[in-house]
């Protein structure tokens, strides 16, 4: 059993100590750059940036891989769609569909892009405590005119921190469920359809039930969502501005010179 999926791994590295906003903005920049890039050489550079960051943060590589693993099915689907549905020079064909050289290129590139997104996101969640992450996002949303849309940044922050706290819970539940069904002989490798069905039906039930329980619990404690204070008060410091500038420069260099 592995529950490292987007988990926070406590530590004292420079990246751990950065303000959550610095890291959130960096991941946003990285995502934009990753989707702009179009060559494998540039991809390799981004990979190098990721490796350096993950060394600096001393997050073991298996933690980042844990974020990619459960998504492999989707990644394979994305790859195959590109491979077979792109027009171009045919490589080989399979029951009427032909794989193309262009499809292979685009498919690989797109798959790598998604993997990178997951890796960078996992670095963010691995080095930032969930409460800090929420506080950071809440601060970033404050200047937006959300009131007009009928919600406050506090509401959003609450929703976010609830989802962040629900995630490991649901994940743990999924593992217990998998244990139970596998004890009854379920073989995920051999019967994927049965696996999805026998896991998703009970998962849905649990998710809805837990959501209902939490909302009752919040209501009975008079949750109003008007002014939510945070135990953590993130502050941008000199090292944040330094780190952010350095990251922007590196990304800019990759974008324009690679």
């Amino acid at each position: 059993m592995s529950n490292l999926f987007f988990t926070y791994i406590p530590g004292t590295s420079l990246i751990h100590r950065l303000d959550p906003r610095t890291k959130i903005i960096s991941v946003m920049i990285a995502s934009m750059i990753i989707f702009k890039l179009a060559s494998f050489a540039e991809m390799a550079l981004i990979g190098a940036v990721f490796l350096i960051l993950s060394l600096v943060s001393s997050i073991p590589f298996k933690v980042s891989m844990a974020a990619v693993k459960p998504m492999i099915v989707f990644l394979v689907i994305i790859f195959l769609m590109q491979l077979f549905l792109t027009e171009g020079t045919a490589l080989f064909s399979l029951s009427g569909f032909s794989a193309t050289r262009e499809g292979l290129h685009i498919g690989l590139l797109l798959t790598v892009k998604f993997v990178y997104l997951l890796l960078f996101a996992s670095l963010l969640t691995a080095t930032t405590a969930p409460s800090m992450l929420t506080a950071g996002i809440e601060r970033m949303l404050r200047p937006l005119p959300l009131k007009k849309a009928g919600i406050s940044s506090f509401d959003l922050a609450t929703m976010m921190s609830l989802s962040i706290h629900f995630f490991p819970l649901l994940y743990e539940h999924l593992w217990h469920l998998k244990d139970a069904q596998m004890s009854r002989g379920l073989d995920p490798g051999r019967s994927p359809f049965k696996t999805v069905y026998s896991l998703s039906v009970p998962m849905m039930r649990t998710a809805f039930r837990s959501a209902e329980e939490v909302s009752f619990a919040m209501e009975s404690r008079c949750y109003q969502g008007i002014c939510r204070t945070s135990l953590f008060d993130p502050r941008m410091q000199r090292r944040d501005f330094a780190a952010l500038s350095a990251f922007v420069v590196v990304m800019w260099v990759i974008l324009f010179f690679a």
């Binding site: 244990d179 009970p202 649990t206």
Partner: peptide
Amino acid sequence: VGILFQFPQNQLFA
């Protein structure tokens, strides 16, 4: 080896 886990009612799906 059959295992009945905690809260086994959660495993029902069919």
